[in-house]
Simulated assay, not measured.
Amino acid sequence: MKLFAKIFASVFAVLFIWAGILQYNDPDSLLWYVIYGSSALASLIFIFDKLRLSIAVLLSFLYLIGSYIFWPEHYEGISLNGGDIYKIEHARESLGLLINAMVMFFYSWRIRFSRKA
């Protein structure tokens, strides 16, 4: 399980870096650089078994709250099929934050139960 967790964290570190890079043309790109950068950094720290449980839990809750805040009033999907671009963008951002939250929750769970073993 430990090897799986390290591979999982390595994959998500790369994915978070890539997601941050893709934000270069976003109007609020600095915000997303910080969000995806902190997730990538947390993933790298997790790989070296230095991520603290409190940090992983805090990030998980912050991302969950952010996902709730960004969720559009009326969900129109995530593909550009003639819907309102702002609602679609907010749905994408919300789902991205939800993915971050789930990954940080996994790290929290793994840290918590690796201490018992």
Rank of each mutant, 00 (worst) to 15 (best):
residue 27 P to M: 07
residue 15 L to S: 07
residue 59 L to N: 05
residue 5 A to S: 09
residue 15 L to C: 06
residue 9 A to Y: 06
residue 54 S to E: 14
residue 6 K to E: 05
residue 90 H to C: 03
residue 62 L to S: 05
residue 106 F to H: 01
residue 18 W to F: 11
residue 104 M to A: 02
residue 81 N to F: 14
residue 98 L to W: 14
residue 21 I to M: 12
residue 23 Q to D: 04
residue 5 A to R: 05
residue 55 I to L: 15
residue 8 F to V: 01
residue 15 L to R: 07
residue 43 S to F: 01
residue 72 P to N: 12
residue 59 L to C: 07
residue 65 I to K: 10
residue 71 W to Q: 09
residue 44 L to R: 00
residue 42 A to L: 13
residue 6 K to G: 01
residue 47 I to E: 09
residue 113 F to Y: 14
residue 16 F to R: 00
residue 101 A to E: 09
residue 116 K to P: 02
residue 66 G to T: 13
residue 48 F to S: 13
residue 51 L to P: 00
residue 7 I to Q: 06
residue 104 M to D: 05
residue 90 H to F: 10
residue 5 A to C: 02
residue 100 N to V: 06
residue 66 G to W: 11
residue 8 F to H: 12
residue 84 D to Q: 11
residue 112 R to E: 02
residue 70 F to M: 13
residue 110 R to V: 10
residue 102 M to V: 12
residue 33 Y to P: 01
residue 82 G to T: 03
residue 26 D to I: 01
residue 17 I to F: 12
residue 92 R to S: 06
residue 71 W to G: 00
residue 38 S to C: 09
residue 80 L to W: 11
residue 39 S to I: 01
residue 7 I to D: 10
residue 54 S to Q: 15
residue 32 W to R: 07
residue 107 Y to A: 15
residue 72 P to V: 08
residue 52 R to A: 15
residue 24 Y to E: 13
residue 75 Y to E: 11
residue 22 L to V: 04
residue 17 I to P: 00
residue 79 S to A: 11
residue 62 L to Y: 07
residue 76 E to W: 08
residue 13 A to K: 03
residue 71 W to V: 00
residue 66 G to L: 09
residue 84 D to V: 04
residue 80 L to F: 15
residue 88 I to W: 10
residue 96 G to V: 09
residue 80 L to I: 12
residue 82 G to C: 02
residue 85 I to G: 04
residue 46 F to T: 00
residue 84 D to G: 01
residue 71 W to E: 10
residue 3 L to Q: 11
residue 110 R to W: 14
residue 63 Y to C: 12
residue 115 R to P: 00
residue 45 I to G: 07
residue 52 R to L: 15
residue 21 I to V: 09
residue 36 Y to V: 04
residue 44 L to E: 10
residue 99 I to Y: 04
residue 2 K to F: 08
residue 103 V to W: 06
residue 50 K to D: 11
residue 66 G to P: 02
residue 52 R to T: 15
residue 33 Y to S: 02
residue 117 A to W: 09
residue 45 I to F: 10
residue 44 L to V: 13
residue 70 F to C: 06
residue 12 F to L: 12
residue 42 A to I: 06
residue 49 D to H: 08
residue 14 V to N: 00
residue 69 I to T: 06
residue 68 Y to R: 08
residue 68 Y to A: 07
residue 100 N to C: 14
residue 50 K to S: 08
residue 41 L to Q: 01
residue 16 F to C: 00
residue 89 E to T: 15
residue 23 Q to A: 13
residue 14 V to K: 00
residue 46 F to C: 04
residue 45 I to V: 14
residue 3 L to G: 00
residue 115 R to Q: 11
residue 102 M to F: 12
residue 108 S to K: 05
residue 104 M to W: 03
residue 73 E to Q: 14
residue 25 N to H: 03
residue 38 S to D: 03
residue 58 L to P: 00
